[in-house]
Nucleic acid binder design. Structure first.
Lengths: 234, 234
DNA sequence: GCACATCTGCACAACCTCTTCACGGTTCGC
DNA sequence: GCGAACCGTGAAGAGGTTGTGCAGATGTGC
């Protein structure tokens, strides 16, 4: 994303040009659209990083543009409202706008808001990329950040300990973890007390995510099956 | 910005001088320009903090001056219009002017407007540095700038603490935040006193935005549900 | 100063979880 | 095949965590 693309949607040529010029001066790759259909068409082609969108448009209005564009791919939208109309703002935000400015607005502020939206997008993608908070093992998904787990698309309710246990296993799919190791990871450092505690929780886990997903290795410990047995005969 | 520089652009020497004199008396460092090209040249050299700009100018008019100057660097512009022409005013604001005065104007008012512009710019640049303004989570919209919140399009009244709490949760949708984390974010650094305070406010929040939107994660904390239960009927 | 809204902390009840034990079935080494 | 070690299972008590209502403290605007 070396040169962020910005789409300016505004029917008044004077305002559109002036906004576009200002944003180009800031170093953005700016496209312009002057009505609803044109805006949607431009986005379908090649979605920009940010959209600056006026609400009052010929064709269909800003809300509709927002809906249609967002339906394809989520794009940050900075909304321009002619009046300080509470309802317009709230409606706009409800249909997917990310920020708003009321006319008359200062160019400085507009530029700042666009930059803020871009920062947010970048930050979000960085977070998604560098935070391996989600483990996928076959059709099992373990979201350690949200502490949720789905098996074959179905949400599974797990108790705290069950979740920690599964997260631990999912961090190394196919690898066998000893009871001692699991006790250390999930239960901190409990003097090697009843190792049967692990068994109990494995049992509970199996009952919830399917017994075949957790393999017992006799004399060693447990492992999460990397992929379901074979090509599932569905 | 110890001594703010002000550029006065006005073709009538009498008015120009009188404005300049008055502003100098207020302690500003004042330059003068008497036509469009001169104004642009002065700005290219060394942009002032504020421009007082007449619309009727020889060379090119005030709009053009405004556009060219703003293309280089955003500078607050106080526009002077001969008539009380709505179109002129709107066009001017669109090309980057920040305020306007209609002739005939009083010196006192002009001085006040210039001072207000300087204040506003300072404040705006502070604001611009802040984080994004709006969080959308499902059909829940949290406008941290306007400190407003809507659920399914309906405006919801929240107390300050409730709003901060929700904003904190909305900043990381689906992520579980511990009570300690929430105390740190919303209540600054609370000696680890009653974490039950969080519970109380969560209860109040749930009553207002719908209990199903805030998920309890036993033994860990709370999370905002990323998407509402049912698949959205588009 | 007063009325009002809001925040905080507590106590209680309800709920959820963890752990442990004993028993029976299974696997492994010989 | 046999013994020993290992694992699965079920149940129940103990302990911890959360939801809720309420009262006092605090802050705010008129």
């Amino acid at each position: 994303m070396s040169v962020p693309r910005v789409l300016v949607v505004e029917d008044d040529p004077v305002i559109n040009d002036s906004v576009a010029r200002r944003l180009r001066a800031e170093g953005y790759d700016v496209r312009q659209a002057f009505d609803g259909p044109e805006a949607v068409a431009t986005c379908a082609d090649d979605p920009p990083e940010v959209i600056v969108l006026d609400l009052m448009l010929p064709g269909y209005d800003g809300f509709e543009v927002c809906r249609r564009v967002q339906a394809v791919r989520p794009v940050p939208v900075l909304m321009l409202t002619a009046r300080d109309d509470e309802n317009d703002i709230l409606t706009g935000l409800a249909v997917g706008a990310d920020d708003y400015l009321t006319k008359p607005f200062g160019m400085r502020e507009l530029v700042a808001r666009v930059a803020a939206l871009l920062r947010r997008v970048e930050r979000a993608s960085e977070l998604a990329a560098q935070a391996p908070v989600v483990h996928s093992v076959g059709d099992l998904v373990v979201d350690t950040g949200g502490r949720r787990c789905t098996a074959a698309g179905e949400l599974v309710h797990l108790t705290p300990t069950e979740f920690d246990l599964l997260a631990c296993l999912a961090a190394a799919p196919g690898q066998v973890l000893t009871r001692e190791r699991l006790l250390a990871e999930v239960w901190d450092w409990p003097g090697a007390s009843g190792t049967r505690t692990v068994d109990s929780h494995v049992k509970a886990l199996r009952a919830k995510i399917g017994a075949e997903r957790v393999r017992t290795v006799h004399g060693v410990g447990y492992a999460l099956e990397p992929a379901p047995p074979g090509p599932v005969p569905s």
